[in-house]
Simulated assay, not measured.
Amino acid sequence: MSDEHTPQAADTSQRGFLHRVVLMDGIAALFLLTLAGLWFAADALLLIFACVLFAVLLQALSGIVQRRLRVRSHTLSLALVVFLLFGLLGAGGWLMAPQLSEQAAHLAKVVPTSLEQVRAELERYPRLRSLLAEMPSTAQIGRQLAAMVPNAGLFFSGVLGALGNVAIILFAGIYFAAKPQLYIDGMVRLVPPHKRARAREVLAEIGATLSKWLLGKSLSMLVAGIMTSVGLALLGVPLALLLGIIAGLLDFIPYLGPLMAGVPALLIAFSSSPEQALYVLLLFGGIQLVQGYLVEPLIDQRTISIPPALTIAMQLMFGTVFGMAGVALATPMTAVLMVLVVMLYVQDVLGDRVKPPAQQTAEAKD
């Protein structure tokens, strides 16, 4: 009689089968627990990602300071960058705080009034009355916006929570940027030894991609804010400075941000006259043309270019899962996913010689 038909062999085979079943069940349970942890800790993970983004920006700026000023110490260059950033923000806030506070209070009063004026103007046209009847009232819109504000945060909610998020991003970002190698080494130790060199390459490419994207986006936000403020001021629209700052900040969100920034400007202009609202609409259209066909292509040549359709799709996906914070961080998270897919799947698994986004842009520039 062969060994495979003996009771001992059958018992060994049964134990091996049970071991495989338990192992598969354990892996499935661990996977489900990981998904649940990611779901419930999504806000905290987004906040950590925002901290990493700020650290990458500080790293990129300190690298520029090291090269231009020939500073040998990374700590000294980072200290100079932090001092300059906080100094500029503090000086700008001290100089513009009274004007911005007054304009913000005025904006809170003007927007609801402008909404009522727009509704009253549109009700003059019979074809639009049925559409207006289905639209929410001004009070309902205000309640919906107020309900969205807590969900727009990363971890804490409310006004004080937003300040807490900013403080965490600032201080954690500085700590990450001060000793980045400490945290990189900690992540690499989680990878098997024979894969650690490749893990360092992937992390370095992610850092380079995010730094290039952040520098380009910062320049684009500055250009958008200046053009909006100057254009609205020339048109005689009230609150031009505040609306320009809002437009510059919302330009961080590609495609959706400029649309969101144009709404309050149009409402305020419409409160003066429909003609001025038309001029403001033309102004924002012109700014988007300049941004889309001149500024952003020039910036993308030196940074990275993400396909527009992919960006919008990821904004919808992350916005559905994570809310407004997911929409705001969708583009840099997409850049990270592109690097991971290209390097870990396309290159390592499929064997194709495809360059990551930042390297593709560098080759196109050359």
Rank of each mutant, 00 (worst) to 15 (best):
227 M>Y: 12
227 M>C: 11
230 V>I: 15
230 V>D: 13
231 G>F: 11
232 L>T: 09
232 L>H: 06
233 A>V: 00
233 A>F: 04
233 A>H: 07
234 L>P: 01
234 L>W: 07
235 L>V: 12
235 L>A: 09
236 G>E: 13
237 V>D: 14
237 V>Q: 15
238 P>R: 09
238 P>K: 06
239 L>F: 15
240 A>S: 15
240 A>F: 14
241 L>Q: 12
241 L>G: 11
243 L>P: 14
244 G>S: 11
245 I>A: 13
245 I>N: 07
246 I>Q: 09
247 A>S: 15
250 L>E: 08
250 L>W: 06
251 D>Q: 15
252 F>P: 06
252 F>Q: 03
252 F>M: 10
254 P>K: 06
254 P>G: 10
255 Y>S: 11
255 Y>N: 14
256 L>I: 14
258 P>T: 03
258 P>Q: 09
260 M>E: 02
262 G>L: 10
263 V>A: 06
265 A>G: 05
265 A>Y: 02
265 A>L: 04
268 I>M: 05
269 A>L: 07
269 A>G: 10
271 S>H: 05
272 S>P: 09
273 S>R: 03
274 P>A: 03
274 P>V: 03
276 Q>W: 09
277 A>F: 05
279 Y>L: 07
279 Y>P: 00
281 L>V: 00
282 L>F: 12
284 F>N: 04
284 F>E: 07
285 G>C: 00
285 G>A: 00
285 G>E: 00
285 G>N: 00
285 G>M: 00
287 I>V: 12
288 Q>G: 05
290 V>H: 03
291 Q>G: 02
293 Y>M: 06
293 Y>A: 08
294 L>S: 02
294 L>T: 08
295 V>G: 02
297 P>K: 13
297 P>Q: 13
298 L>D: 03
298 L>V: 04
298 L>W: 07
299 I>H: 04
300 D>H: 08
300 D>G: 02
301 Q>R: 15
302 R>G: 06
304 I>L: 13
304 I>V: 08
305 S>K: 15
